[in-house]
Simulated assay, not measured.
Amino acid sequence: MARDLQITFDCADPAGLAVFWAEALGYQVQGPPAGFESWEQALDAMGVPPERRNDASAVVDPDGAGPRLFFQRVPEGKQVKNRVHLDVRAAPGLQGDERMAALEAEADRLVAHGAKRLERFEPHPPLGAGHLVMADPEGNEFCLD
């Protein structure tokens, strides 16, 4: 039986990281519960104090195909390299220089939104197609593949 999948990020700024990943993936910040026009309205009704309103956020695929990404505030900062990371498929079907140019363009776009470029791996046919290692605004590594 297939399962739904949610990917959870521990972070310092759930709302900020949600906006970054929505931009990176073409997702959207998840809207408020039914019956509320905004998250502020919903959180007021739930009695959530102002200092707790950035404890969590989520982004969703507008087409409903991809997994939900959930961001939860934790007190500690990131300390070591990720053991699991996301591969963002930014150049599907492209090869060689055309592929690397598309990855570079996407890297530039994401850097403008707070990402950091970490490393470039050149194509090594026939096995390696080349990719870029990046970090989101809180230092979580991901690849542009």
Rank of each mutant, 00 (worst) to 15 (best):
D63L: 13
L5M: 10
G64K: 07
G93S: 14
F142T: 00
E37M: 06
P123T: 01
H85N: 07
E40D: 12
D108W: 07
R89W: 11
P92E: 12
A135Y: 01
A22T: 05
D63A: 15
G16W: 01
E23F: 06
T8Q: 15
Q72P: 02
G93M: 14
G96E: 12
H85I: 02
G26E: 09
V80E: 14
D10L: 06
K116D: 15
Q41T: 09
T8H: 12
E138L: 02
A42T: 08
K116G: 13
R53L: 01
D63M: 07
D108T: 11
Q6A: 13
L144E: 02
E141Q: 15
D4K: 12
Q41F: 03
K78T: 08
A15N: 11
C143K: 09
R89G: 15
L103V: 07
P137H: 05
G26R: 07
G16M: 04
V60W: 01
V59H: 00
M134N: 02
A91I: 06
D4T: 11
A129M: 15
A90V: 02
G66E: 04
E23N: 11
E122Q: 13
K81Y: 09
V84N: 10
T8G: 12
Q95T: 13
D97K: 15
E76S: 08
G31K: 08
A107P: 00
A129R: 08
A102W: 08
D55M: 12
A115K: 00
D87C: 05
A22H: 01
P62M: 04
L17I: 04
A22G: 07
L144M: 11
G77A: 15
D136A: 08
D87Y: 05
V84Y: 10
E98Y: 10
A102C: 14
L103N: 08
A107T: 09
A2D: 09
Q6M: 11
V19R: 14
E51H: 12
A129H: 13
Q28P: 05
Q41D: 10
L17S: 04
D44Y: 03
L110M: 13
F9L: 05
G26C: 09
G128Y: 02
R68W: 06
A101C: 04
K78S: 10
D10N: 14
M134C: 03
R109I: 10
G114P: 07
